[in-house]
Each structure stands twice: as C-alpha cells, then as structure tokens.
C-alpha cells in the first residue's frame, strides 16, 4: 500500500475533478498528497480481513418518506440564482459530448 504517486496521476485526478493546475501546483500537490498517502500506510498494520464498512454508526435502516407532494420553489427564485438563463431554463455554453 505504498504510494507511488506520480505527477501524471495528479494531473489525471485534476482532470477528473475539473480543476486546472499550474506546473508549480502539480509539483506541490504531488509532494503533499504523497505525504498524506504515505501517512496512510500506517493503516496497513491492522489486520482488516473480513471487517465490514460501517454505513451508519447507529444502524439506521429503511428511512423513507410518504409519496406526498410538497410545494416546489417559485421559478423566479430558482432562476434568480442562475449565472445565466433563457426561456425559463438554466443556460450553459455548448456541451461537448453526450451524457455518459
């Protein structure tokens, strides 16, 4: 579980996260993230075979609500938040690809 974190890994992650990093930031993050991941290697000392992840600390399950309509927001309020809108819709510059 050592962390062979490379500069290109950091660049790939930045693309996934929709962040642009300068060369200096790439270097800095490569080093700093490497440190955190290296610190995380101490977890390897525990025998975690068969341990299950905990979802809710107090074991809540089956939390549901009734299928009953509640008021929606006023459209004017909704669109007032939008950086750009047109025809009562949120406007964005062109979308380059189909939804995955």
């Amino acid at each position: 579980m050592s962390s062979p974190l490379r500069r290109e890994d950091v660049a790939h992650v930045a693309r996934l996260a929709r962040l642009t990093l300068s060369d200096a930031e790439l270097d800095m993050f490569t080093e700093q993230l490497g440190q955190v991941l290296e610190h995380a290697n101490d977890m390897a000392s525990l025998d975690l075979e068969g341990v299950v992840a905990t979802a809710h600390p107090f074991g809540l399950i089956n939390v549901v609500r009734d299928d009953v309509v509640r008021p929606s927001l006023e459209r004017d309020v909704v669109l007032a938040m939008a950086p750009d809108s047109q025809d009562h819709r949120f406007a964005v510059p062109r979308i380059m690809g189909e939804s995955p």
Binding site: M1, L37, A40, M43, A44, L46, L48, V51, V52, A53, T54, P57
Partner: peptide, 14 residues
Amino acid sequence: AYYGQALKVRTRMI
C-alpha cells in the same frame, strides 16, 4: 487500498 481500507479502520474504531 485507500478509501476501502479507511472505512474498515472506521469500523475498527467503532
């Protein structure tokens, strides 16, 4: 290696 392991550590902590 990371997130999955961390969740198990969390269970151990509990």
